[in-house]
């Protein structure tokens, strides 16, 4: 998400990109929302930690929209009388760390292995594919129980569990795309002209593989947040007093019939975040694809 390119060297390009973003209003809103989530994740835990853990058993399950109370209670209170809004803001930190960590690690490892598998000797390719098979059929719940039994249920260890289980999808997708692309004329041509393997991979193949992988990665962001929530549902995920949105949904689901807001708001946070990521990724696919960029560069008839 953060742009590592030095900004000053490419002012025109950045401005061009922002202009393209402005053209797609939905993507614009999405970007703004994600920025807000990132701010919450960065500063929320520092500023609201105490407020979010302050319990009041006798004022539990306070209903939402009671604007006479402190703003942190506007979304209601949880089962221990803690302000939901403050908790959602604080939980953004862990949630983003788990999801981003897991998605980034699996994307990086999976893509690397997949490209190697698609572009090297048969033996290496076979070994990598067998590895993917083993991971794919290794039950993720067993992995979670093993890791969390031996190591504490911290954010870092949860990232390990989730990242490992998500590697195969990137690996297989990257390999499949590479298999297809390397047969294309221009890649063959580059090879004939003596381009080195790394050059072919990074200059010719990666840019074509990337859009698909990014689509999957953004969707996986949702998947990982939900998987984390599922682990909490089964009681083997992250453990209180740490909080994530997924844990809040899992804890709140037993109150679905009596206090819906406990699991609804954090669920909504998950949905909005993934929705924004997806809208942004759809925009990015178009903006990054030279063949489709025209849709954003011209003022299109779709608007």
């Amino acid at each position: 998400m953060t742009d590592s390119q030095p900004v000053r060297e490419l002012p025109s390009k950045l401005v061009q990109l922002l202009r393209m973003l402005w053209r797609d209003k939905l993507a614009c809103i999405a970007a703004a929302f994600l920025l807000l989530v990132i701010c919450c994740a960065l500063f929320g835990p520092m500023m609201l930690e105490d407020l979010a853990t302050k319990q009041n058993l006798r004022g539990r399950n306070a209903p939402p929209f009671d604007f006479s109370k402190n703003w942190t209670f506007w979304l209601g209170g949880d089962a221990l009388g803690r302000p939901l809004l403050a908790r959602i803001i604080v939980a953004a930190g862990n949630t983003m760390m788990v999801a981003a960590g897991a998605v980034f690690c699996s994307l990086l490892i999976g893509t690397t292995l997949g490209m190697i598998a698609g572009y090297t000797s048969k033996l290496t390719s076979q070994i990598i594919l067998r590895l993917a098979d083993v991971i794919m059929s290794f039950p993720s719940l067993l992995l979670a129980v093993i890791v969390l039994y031996m190591l504490p249920a911290s954010v870092g260890n949860l990232v390990i569990v989730l990242a490992i289980t998500r590697i195969p999808v990137y690996l297989r997708t990257a390999r499949a795309e590479v298999l297809e692309i390397r047969e294309r004329m221009f890649v063959q041509a580059a090879r004939v002209m003596g381009a080195s393997t790394p050059r072919i991979i990074f200059r010719h193949i990666l840019p074509l593989v990337f859009p698909t992988l990014i689509t999957i990665a953004t969707l996986d962001f949702a998947f990982v947040m939900l998987a984390e929530s599922s682990l909490s549902f089964l009681g083997i995920g992250i453990q209180p007093p740490e909080i994530t949105w997924g844990l809040m949904v899992a804890q709140g689901r037993s109150y679905l019939t009596s206090a819906w807001w406990l699991s609804f708001w954090p669920g909504l946070a998950i949905i909005f975040t993934t929705l924004s990521l997806n809208l942004l990724s759809n925009w990015m696919r178009v903006a990054l694809d030279p063949q489709q960029r025209w849709r954003l560069e011209m003022s299109t008839q779709n608007d």
């Binding site: 058993l57 089962a79 221990l80």
Partner: peptide
């Protein structure tokens, strides 16, 4: 509600 109970006890 064991989780809530334990969180409350901790606090």
């Amino acid at each position: 509600n064991v989780l809530e109970t334990m969180e409350a006890l901790l606090a």
